[in-house]
């Protein structure tokens, strides 16, 4: 616990100072880290806390991103309205998918969430007039304070920090306790009056809400959206981040997202085979540190 707070404070200090000493390229990298950190923590709500290997989290990230783009380009809303509405739309997607998935577990849950994701990907790819198909949508204009890269970084930092704080409260609340309880022993949970499927469903909605927020921020940062964000490799991203950092702690996926984005940024500059190095790193971490990088700080799960 103390280790987690120390790490949190160090990250906060770096996050406040770093972008003002770095180039605009690195400011964008920091924004990407923040959005992915939120994406990974929202995913870990399902995997780490709820024990649900949902293999389709990119749907929620993608729906959030496309919601922002479509609201701005087709409905003519400004960026602020779009980013406020996007998580809600993503939460609706979470409610629909969660409705069908909350009673499943293990590989069945994985396959059904995967199927929903491929469905969403195909719909986005084929609805050319609405989503731009292969080309995606671009030219998302932000005005005002957040128009500059550093301004947008600060807005993202505040939004992600508040979102992570809410998620931190959630996992330590009675709701989070019940979520961890049903992961290990669903029968005992049901016998103790917990409506396990409702709890799992609500977790889907909450995870979708925050993944949608992350996707929306990422869309604004890129000023565009692409169908690849809903593809299966976009689903693998938060899984890799959670495994890298450690899915048994709150901060694990955040550390994982930082490592992931840093590796991607550095290695793509050096070699086109960056994924090879990333893969090797994952194998090494899984073998040497089964609970991720966070296990260097802590002995036991929180």
């Amino acid at each position: 616990m103390r280790a987690q707070i120390t790490i949190g404070l160090v990250c906060a200090a770096v996050a406040l100072v770093a972008p003002f000493t770095a180039s605009e390229f690195w400011v964008f990298v920091f924004i990407e880290m923040l959005a992915f950190a939120l994406y990974a923590v929202s995913f870990n709500l399902l995997l780490g806390y709820g024990g649900m290997l949902a293999f389709g989290h990119a749907v929620f990230f993608g729906v959030g991103a496309y919601a922002v783009a479509i609201l701005m380009k087709k409905a003519g809303l400004d960026a602020l309205c779009a980013i406020l509405l996007a998580p809600l739309i993503s939460a609706v997607a979470g409610a629909i998918i969660g409705y069908f998935c909350n009673r499943l577990s293990g590989i069945y849950l994985g396959m059904l969430t995967f199927a929903f994701q491929m469905l969403a990907y195909t719909v986005v790819l084929k609805s050319y007039s609405f989503t731009g198909g292969d080309d995606g949508l671009s030219g998302l204009k932000i005005t005002g304070f957040a128009a500059s890269p550093r301004g947008f970084y600060l807005v993202t930092l505040v939004v992600v920090a508040v979102a992570l704080l809410l998620l931190w409260r959630l996992v330590h609340s009675p709701f989070g306790l019940a979520l961890r309880a049903q992961r290990g022993n669903p029968n005992r949970s049901v016998a103790l009056g917990i409506n396990v499927s409702l709890h799992r469903w609500m977790t889907f909605v909450i995870a979708a809400l925050f993944a949608g927020l992350a996707g929306g921020l990422f869309a604004l940062a890129n000023q565009s959206v692409f169908p690849g964000w809903l593809n299966w490799n976009a689903t693998a991203t938060p899984i890799v981040m959670a495994i890298l950092g450690g899915m048994n702690s709150f901060f694990g996926p955040i550390i994982g997202s930082i490592i992931y984005v840093l590796m991607q940024t550095w290695l793509t500059g050096l070699t086109e085979y960056w994924a090879l190095f990333l893969g090797t790193t994952i194998i090494l971490i899984v073998m040497l540190l089964p609970n991720g990088v966070m296990s260097l700080w802590q002995g036991r799960k929180p």
């Binding site: 809410l166 409260r169 959630l170 330590h172 609340s173 009675p174 709701f175 989070g176 306790l177 019940a178 309880a181 949970s189 103790l192 009056g193 917990i194 709890h199 609500m202 909450i206």
Partner: peptide, 24 residues
């Protein structure tokens, strides 16, 4: 925590997603 879950469930407080369970 084992006992807290049962008690929080009995008092129907398991949908509280904000306060810290540790002290309840």
């Amino acid at each position: 925590e084992n006992l807290q879950i049962a008690l929080l469930s009995y008092h129907r407080r398991l949908f509280d997603g904000f306060r810290t369970a540790r002290h309840m």
